[in-house]
């Protein structure tokens, strides 16, 4: 009788990192999303480190130059180097997205938990407010808020705040429904019977199981923050001095960039924005699939 030798390695459970990469292979959307995002981060970080960011502001370089070796993305009507403007703009976009996304997710998770876990009148109030606000187009309310502000008060940070004011509803509803279903599972009843307190159950039992959902709704919040701040900037409600990507497109359009033949001015920021939003949307869809075993592709 022959015994087949099995090398010891095959017994070892692959590490979590390797498992994650194996999962990425099955979830190409998530993979592509991460790939683009890493590229964007590299572009921004290398750019911030190597480029003089003062070139991103008016009157710093020769205006209206088409893309060349010296100015790879050209320069605009106001004398901004568009490469520098893109680097600064992407950095600021990331700042708005992450700030507003983190804040929105935090509020959403907190409200969703309170609503679902304690139920009763509190739950009805939170759910009712979300339902009433739902038909009101968020963007329009943001237009009212941004339009009421003094133009000098509009900065990257106020943009993030305006965006987050109405962006917590979706995370709240998602987390609420997840906690509602999780509350009824056995491990929570067991924890309750064994005498754990409410806070302990929330933090030690429910929260860890919700992490994929929280991650997905964080990415969603970042996406919607970037999206809405971009729209606000495109209609001219952004911090006008800053080279936010939406501001650049707004400035190009109001100077009639295509009519005057300065095609590079709106085009490059638009490409950057497409990459940002597409990568976030793909990651969000991928995380949804990861979080929701029912749609997760088995292999």
């Amino acid at each position: 009788m022959t015994t087949t030798m099995i090398s010891q390695q095959e017994f070892l459970q692959p590490s979590r990192v390797i498992l994650f990469f194996r999962y990425l292979r099955r979830n190409p959307g998530l993979f592509i999303g991460f790939f683009i995002l890493i590229g964007l981060i590299l572009f921004t970080v290398i750019g911030v480190l190597t480029i003089d960011s003062s070139d991103a502001y008016p009157l710093s370089v020769k205006p209206k130059q088409p893309p060349s070796l010296e100015y790879p993305f050209g320069t605009d009507f106001y004398g901004r180097d568009l490469l520098a403007a893109m680097v600064v703009g992407m950095w600021q976009t990331a700042l708005i997205g992450v700030l507003a996304g983190a804040l929105g997710t935090f509020i959403g998770v907190a409200l969703g938990f309170i609503s679902a876990y304690f139920g009763g009148r509190l739950d009805n109030t939170i759910k009712g407010v979300c339902q009433i606000l739902q038909p009101i187009p968020v963007f329009l309310i943001q237009v009212v808020i941004a339009g009421s502000l003094d133009k000098r008060d509009v900065t990257i940070y106020t943009m993030a705040l305006i965006v987050v004011l109405l962006a917590w509803m979706w995370p709240t509803l998602v987390i609420r429904s997840q906690v509602l279903s999780m509350k009824e599972r056995q491990f929570v009843s067991v924890a309750k019977l064994s005498g754990m307190g409410d806070l302990e159950i929330i933090f030690a039992e429910i929260l860890p199981n919700l992490l994929p959902f929280i991650a997905a709704s964080f990415v969603w919040s970042v996406f919607s923050a970037v999206f809405t701040s971009f729209y606000l900037a495109v209609v001219g409600l952004g911090p006008l001095r800053e080279p936010l990507l939406g501001n650049t497109i707004w400035a190009a359009q109001s100077q009639g960039a295509f009519f005057n033949g300065w095609w590079w001015w709106p085009l490059f920021p638009a490409i950057a924005m497409v990459l940002i939003l597409t990568s976030l949307a793909l990651i969000n869809m991928g995380l949804d699939e990861l979080a929701n075993p029912r749609v997760r592709r088995m292999e």
Partner: peptide
């Protein structure tokens, strides 16, 4: 589905560039 995240406004910029410009 792949380009679901792209808002119509950005598509408009590309259409303006390729088709109109």
């Amino acid at each position: 589905i792949l380009f679901m995240g792209v808002p119509p406004v950005l598509l408009a910029v590309f259409l303006l560039f390729f088709v109109a410009f």
